[in-house]
């Protein structure tokens, strides 16, 4: 079923939602927000996308690999950022003295916090998408990745 109103609206809504989510993510260390809220907003845009296009074309469906890579990638970024501290002879997750901290209040400041926030954001977005996919398919396993 093709619904033109839905499709046209979603073309505006989805990028706007994602932009807002990215704003929340990138400003996590400066203003209220961060990985969890930003990731949820971006994940919500994926859900909107699946809802609008799911019934029209199979190729528009977001794959299980997408959510899997987002989830795992997010965790890997976080852990790697933590291990950098050990490589530099400090403690796990050390920020000061390992990462460039920049000027307070600017976007490129606070060292690894932004990096970690992006990792959390990816993980949360992936999880939100994954939960939606699981609910949609009712626990069925279409491609073995479950």
């Amino acid at each position: 079923m093709n619904d033109m109103i839905l499709e046209m609206l979603s073309r505006i809504l989805i990028p706007a939602t994602q932009l807002f989510g990215a704003y929340i993510l990138f400003h996590g260390h400066l203003s209220p927000g961060g990985g969890f809220s930003g990731g949820t907003i971006i994940g919500a845009s994926f859900i909107l996308y699946s809802l609008v296009y799911r019934f029209t074309a199979q190729k528009h469906r977001l794959k299980h690999e997408t959510s899997l890579w987002l989830e795992v990638g997010g965790v890997l970024v976080y852990v790697m950022a933590g291990l950098v501290g050990i490589v530099f002879g400090r403690h796990f997750l050390t920020n000061q003295g390992v990462f460039p901290t920049g000027e307070p209040g600017r976007l490129w400041s606070s060292g690894m916090i932004l990096l970690v926030t992006l990792g959390i954001g990816a993980k949360v977005a992936g999880t939100v998408l994954k939960l939606f996919q699981e609910l949609l398919e009712g626990g069925a396993e279409p491609d073995g990745h479950h």
Binding site: L68, W69, V72, V75, L76, V79, G82, H91, F92, H145
Partner: peptide
């Protein structure tokens, strides 16, 4: 000396790599 965190980190890391 990092063993207290590395034990948890290694197990968690493996848990997330296996699905890939």
């Amino acid at each position: 000396g990092h063993a207290p965190v590395l034990i948890v980190v290694v197990l968690l890391l493996a848990a997330f790599i296996i699905p890939l």
